[in-house]
């Protein structure tokens, strides 16, 4: 492939992006469209626990939750995946066996990414060797800001080469990139380096995912698709805790990338508390009554 000059990526007009988002947030998603959307959201969630305080038990609990979102409604889907640190991958694989729920693992010195490539490779290897289906790596933001786009590109490509069949999600940590132009450029670097997914955030930095950020990433994915014919997935992570906002993400996805992206092969939500809000909305739609958090298990 022709060398891409990442110093010359397409420009983004932030006010124009906001304008477009205001069209999405003004939309009204009601009735059967809402219910269907809510089911899709559940099925797109990477149920996530990434705490220093995580334990085997905690991981087991969220694995159970991923498979049994709300047992009173047996037609509910499972989440798309469970997302944990590499040392919990084995546990998650065991717990989720046969459920179809994927195991995703953050790696590459998550969340800062401040380590040499060899350390990162070791980290990734642990995750994959333990059976992770998906690897969520972070880019080197320091190198990015110093303009060493080749380094960022090569690092992603190296990781991609090391993970075999596992799918690679590349976390841009958009909250550290400074503006939308950088988010566009980082998206391009990640995709051309081989990312299967581009993901906004670690969840450790604010702001995390926002609609404007995701729109910029979707437009990058669309241009990449136009250029190469390869579909890259998108994962907003962090900051999406209510169903209404999640529905707006889906609508933005539908209007930007179309129906082929509307599934968990190409779209994920990285979230820990979104699932319960979505469940409350589903139960509200079915019973007509507004719900209380106390009736939905935390994990």
């Amino acid at each position: 492939m022709k060398q891409i000059n990442f110093f010359d990526t397409p420009k983004i007009d932030q006010v124009g992006i906001d304008d477009r988002i205001s069209r999405i947030t003004a939309r009204s998603i009601k009735k059967e469209a809402k219910v269907k959307g809510l089911y899709m959201i559940l099925n797109m969630i990477d149920l996530t626990t990434l705490e220093g305080a995580d334990t085997e038990d905690k991981v087991k609990h969220i694995c159970y939750k991923a498979m049994h979102l709300h047992d009173e409604y047996p037609d509910l889907p499972t989440t798309a995946a469970v997302c944990v640190y590499p040392n919990f991958v084995k546990t998650a694989v065991t717990e989720l066996k046969g459920s179809g729920v994927k195991v995703a693992s953050v790696a590459t010195a998550f969340p800062s990414g401040q380590a040499d490539t060899q350390t990162k490779l070791a980290d990734v290897k642990e995750a994959v060797d333990n059976g992770a289906d998906e690897v969520d790596m972070v880019i080197s933001r320091g190198k990015y800001h110093s303009g060493d786009y080749d380094f960022v590109f090569n690092e992603i490509a190296t990781i991609k080469a090391a993970i075999g069949k596992a799918r690679l999600k590349v976390i841009l940590e958009t909250g550290e990139l400074g503006n939308l132009d950088n988010i566009r450029r980082a998206s391009d670097i990640a995709m051309y380096a081989g990312a299967d997914f581009i993901k906004t955030s670690t969840g450790k930095i604010k702001p995390a995912a926002t609609l404007p950020v995701i729109l910029v990433m979707m437009e990058a994915v669309r241009d990449y698709y136009y250029n190469t014919g390869r579909m890259v997935g998108i994962k907003p992570a962090g900051g999406i805790s209510n169903a209404k906002l999640a529905l707006q993400y889906l609508l933005l996805l539908k209007e930007t990338l179309g129906g082929k992206w509307l599934n968990n092969t190409y779209f994920r939500f990285g979230a820990s508390s979104l699932a319960n809000d979505v469940l409350m909305q589903i139960v509200k739609q079915k019973t007509g009554n507004y719900q209380s958090k106390d009736y939905f298990s935390k994990d």
């Binding site: 998603i29 009735k31 809402k34 250029n227 209007e255 179309g258 129906g259």
Partner: peptide
């Protein structure tokens, strides 16, 4: 624009009427 691929904007998730 190196490919001829197009985005298919149809989907099986139509919006319900919101009068």
């Amino acid at each position: 624009m190196k490919t001829k691929v197009d985005i298919d904007y149809s989907s099986d998730w139509p919006l319900a009427p919101a009068p």
